[in-house]
Design a protein around this nucleic acid. Structure first.
Lengths: 252, 252
DNA sequence: GGCACCGCCTCTGTATACATCGGTGTGTCC
DNA sequence: GGACACACCGATGTATACAGAGGCGGTGCC
C-alpha cells in the first residue's frame, strides 16, 4: 500500500501523486472539497516529496478538474500549514528536526491537558462512552495484533483524538488533531516494528482503563510516558533519516 | 439590497464593512492576500456581525476585485476557523460561551507551557532580547497609561506572542497567536475600563521581570493569575452580552 | 381566499480566457 | 569565447463566462 511512501530523498519518476479512484474519492461533495481531501492525503502520507512542486495545472490535470478547485484546495492546505509557499509555488511542508521537536512538545502539552483538566476541575468527567468504545477497539487489536504498518498511525491518531474528545474541550481536540496531522508523515516511522505496535496497543489500553477508573494521576503519567516514548523513537528515526539523506543527497 | 443584513445590536448603519484605503490596505501584495487580510480584520474586529452573509459577489464589489480572490480568501479564513459554512454561504464565526471557555482554556495551556518548558528543560532559556524589548514597551506604557480602548487588545496579543516567542517553540507560539486571534473579538471587551488597562500593564511588566530574573516559578504563577483574571472579566462580559442580546433580540 | 405550482433570479461551483511575470535559452555583439 | 539582451514559454494571478441549484414571488386553480 504505502510501498514507496518512505522516501528515498524523493518521489519515483512518475507524477508523484496517486490517481483518483481511491477510498476517500467518493464524489459526494464538491470538487473543491474532494481535491482538498485527496491532496491533503497525498501530502500527509508522504507520497508527495517536499521537493515536488505542486503546480496548479499539473494537479488540475491529475485530478481531472480545472485549476479553480485546485487553487482553493492549495489555499486551504496553506492555512493548515501542510503546504508552504517557496520561490515560485507550493510545496509539501516537511518539518525539520527542530520543528518536529517543537510540534511534538506541543502535542504532549495538548494531550496532557486533556487529562489534567479533569484533575483541576472535578466537574469535568471524561466521557465514559467514548472511552469504552476505544477500550473495546484496542482490546480487539490486542487479541490480534497487526503487523508493522505505517498506516497504523491513523489508528493511533484516532485513539488520541478520542481521548482528547472525551475530555470535553473541542478547541483542544481540534488543535491536537491538527498537530498530529502535521507530524503524521514522520510519526509513521514509529510503527515499522512489531514491538512498537505491541507497546502502543498495551499503553493505549492502560491509559483508557486508568481514565475509566478515574485514576487521573496514573492516566496522566501513562500518557506522558506513552507519548514520550513515541517521541524518542520518532526523533531518533528522523535524525537517522536526515543523516541518510545528507549522505545520499546527490548534489542537492 | 442587504439592508436588513446588519443586525440591531451592533455595527453602524453603513454597509458593515470598512472601505479600502485603511492602513493595511497597502497594495504591495496580491489581491488574494489583500482581500484575505482585509476580510480577516473585518471579521476579527467584529465589524462584521455573525448574521451577515459573506456573499462572494457583494464582497467582490466591495473590495473592487473579482470573485476569484474573494473565494480564496474565504477558503483560507475557513481553514483558520474564522468563518464558518452555514446553510448557503459563509458567516463570521463567533464563539458561544462554551466555546469561548474552551478557547480560553487552550490559551492558558499554551501560555503556561511557554513558561514551564523552561522549568522542565534547563537548556531552554527565554530570549532576553525579546523580553527586554517588551519590558521597555510596557514600561513606557506604564509611564503614560492609555485610556480604555478595545484596540488595546492588539498590544496585549503582541505581548503574549512575544513572551511565547521568547520561549523558543515556534509551533507553540503560532498556535497561541491563532487562538488569541479567535477570541480577540470578545477579548476586546476586557479593555473597556481604565483599571483593566492599568492592571494589564502592571502584570505584563511583572511577568517580564520575573522571566528576565529567571524566576520561572513566579513568572508562571503571575501568568496564571494574569490570564485567569482576564478570563473572568471576559467571560462575565460575554455572559452579560449574550443576555442582553437575548433580551433585545427581535424575534430572531 | 388560500394553497400549490411554475418560473425567474441570484447565488455558488466550475471552467476557461486573458494578463503578467519570471525563467530560460539562444543569438548576437563585443 | 563570454556576456548581455531579447524573445519565447510556461507558470501563476485575475477576470469572466457558463451551469446547476435553491429561494422567492407571482399567478392560477381549487
Amino acid at each position: 500500500m504505502y510501498t514507496e511512501a518512505v522516501p528515498a530523498p524523493e518521489a519515483p519518476p512518475g507524477d508523484g501523486v496517486r490517481r483518483a479512484g481511491d477510498p476517500e474519492a467518493a464524489t459526494a461533495t464538491s470538487r473543491r472539497d474532494r481535491v482538498y481531501a485527496l491532496l491533503r492525503e497525498e501530502v500527509l502520507s508522504g507520497r508527495i516529496a517536499p521537493r515536488v512542486r505542486l503546480g496548479e495545472v499539473r494537479l488540475a490535470e491529475l485530478f481531472g478538474v480545472s485549476r479553480t478547485p485546485v487553487r482553493e484546495a492549495l489555499a486551504r492546505l496553506h492555512s493548515d500549514g501542510l503546504v508552504e509557499r517557496r520561490e515560485n509555488g507550493f510545496y509539501a511542508t516537511v518539518p525539520n528536526l527542530a520543528e518536529l521537536r517543537d510540534l511534538y512538545e506541543l502535542r504532549v502539552t495538548l494531550e496532557l491537558r486533556g487529562i489534567s483538566r479533569a484533575m483541576e476541575d472535578p466537574s469535568v468527567r471524561h466521557d465514559p462512552g467514548v472511552l469504552r468504545a476505544e477500550l473495546e477497539r484496542w482490546e480487539k487489536l490486542r487479541a490480534d495484533v497487526p503487523g508493522p504498518d505505517p498506516s497504523f498511525v491513523l489508528l493511533d491518531e484516532e485513539f488520541h483524538a478520542a481521548v482528547s474528545r472525551a475530555s470535553g474541550n473541542r478547541a483542544l481536540t481540534d488543535s491536537l488533531v491538527s498537530v498530529n496531522r502535521r507530524i503524521r508523515r514522520v510519526r509513521m516511522y514509529d510503527f515499522l516494528t512489531a514491538d512498537r505496535i505491541t507497546s502502543t496497543v498495551t499503553e493505549h489500553i492502560g491509559i483508557t482503563e486508568h481514565l475509566l477508573a478515574g485514576e487521573l494521576d496514573s492516566a496522566y503519567r501513562a500518557m506522558h510516558e506513552h507519548v514520550g516514548a513515541s517521541m524518542e523513537v520518532v526523533l531518533e528515526r528522523a535524525r537517522r533519516a536526515l543523516t541518510q539523506m545528507a549522505l545520499h543527497s546527490d548534489a542537492l
